[in-house]
Amino acid sequence: MTPPKTQTKELLDAMHKRLQVTFGKTLMVELFPENPANYRLNHPRGAILLAYGKSSFGGSEANDAVFQARTLVIRLTLVFRQLNGKDGVIGYLDEIRECLTGWFAPHCDQACRPVAEQFIGQVSGLWQYGQDFSMRATQLQAMVPNEPPLPAHLQFEETP
């Protein structure tokens, strides 16, 4: 039996699918390579490489269980043969931002939003840019069968 995918893997898969549907006919869309030093761009135009960047966590929103906001950042690395023009990375930065801004990923209660873009470098004729996108999910405490159950009298307070 295959174990269920984790929250992070499901988010990456969903973003990969969204980018593949939108750009799959014009660009390569794939996960960031395990060995980036040996990565070879095999597409005539360019590639979007996805990688989990980081998460930050808010304080627990309950006193008797861990329930906290998780803000994730997914890094896209764009590797292109051309900088400007119709096949250049500069135009695709805008198109990718338009594709992902406002999109709701699974497990998320806030839409995807851009948080950073930067020039990474130019190596062997390939232009590289990074785009970071953030979204918010919820991190819940995993219940272990041998632990005592949570109290039955949970009370939640609304914050103004």
Rank of each mutant, 00 (worst) to 15 (best):
D109Y: 15
N84Q: 15
A69N: 15
G121A: 07
R113E: 13
E98V: 13
Q82M: 10
V115S: 06
R75G: 03
V123K: 12
F119Q: 13
E95Y: 11
R97F: 04
P148W: 09
P145G: 08
M135E: 01
L93R: 10
L126Q: 12
L126F: 11
L78Y: 01
W103A: 04
F133E: 01
E98F: 09
Y92Q: 00
Q118M: 07
L93I: 11
L83N: 05
C99I: 08
P114C: 10
F80R: 02
R75L: 07
A69M: 13
Y92F: 14
E117N: 09
T101L: 06
A69K: 15
I74Y: 00
A111Y: 05
E147M: 07
L78T: 02
S124Y: 06
L126C: 10
G102F: 08
V66T: 12
Q82E: 15
F67V: 04
R75D: 14
N146W: 13
Q141W: 04
L140Q: 08
A69G: 14
W127H: 09
T77Q: 04
G102E: 07
E98H: 10
R113L: 11
A142T: 15
E95D: 15
Y129M: 10
Q141M: 09
Q118P: 00
A62H: 04
G91Q: 04
L140H: 08
Q82K: 13
F80T: 06
R75S: 11
D132C: 07
D132Q: 08
Q131L: 15
I74S: 01
K86I: 12
N146D: 15
L72F: 04
A65E: 12
L83D: 03
P145V: 07
M143D: 07
S124H: 12
L93Q: 14
T138Y: 10
D94V: 10
P106H: 05
L72T: 01
V144I: 14
V144S: 08
L100P: 00
L100M: 07
L126D: 04
L72W: 00
L83C: 03
P149D: 11
L100H: 01
M143Y: 05
Q82N: 13
V66Y: 14
E147T: 12
T138W: 09
V89L: 03
A65S: 11
G91H: 03
A69D: 15
T77A: 02
A105N: 03
C108N: 09
T71N: 12
F67W: 04
Y129F: 15
L83S: 03
A137S: 14
I120C: 07
S134H: 01
P145Q: 04
T77P: 04
S134V: 08
G102V: 08
I120D: 15
L93D: 00
R113A: 14
C108I: 02
A142G: 13
V89C: 02
I96P: 00
C99P: 01
Q110M: 13
E61A: 10
T77R: 02
L140P: 00
P149Q: 10
W127V: 06
A137Q: 00
G130H: 02
E147C: 08
V115I: 13
F104M: 13
Q128Y: 02
D109M: 08
A65T: 14
W103E: 08
R70L: 09
F119E: 12
S134E: 11
C108V: 01
P145H: 06
R81M: 05
N84S: 15
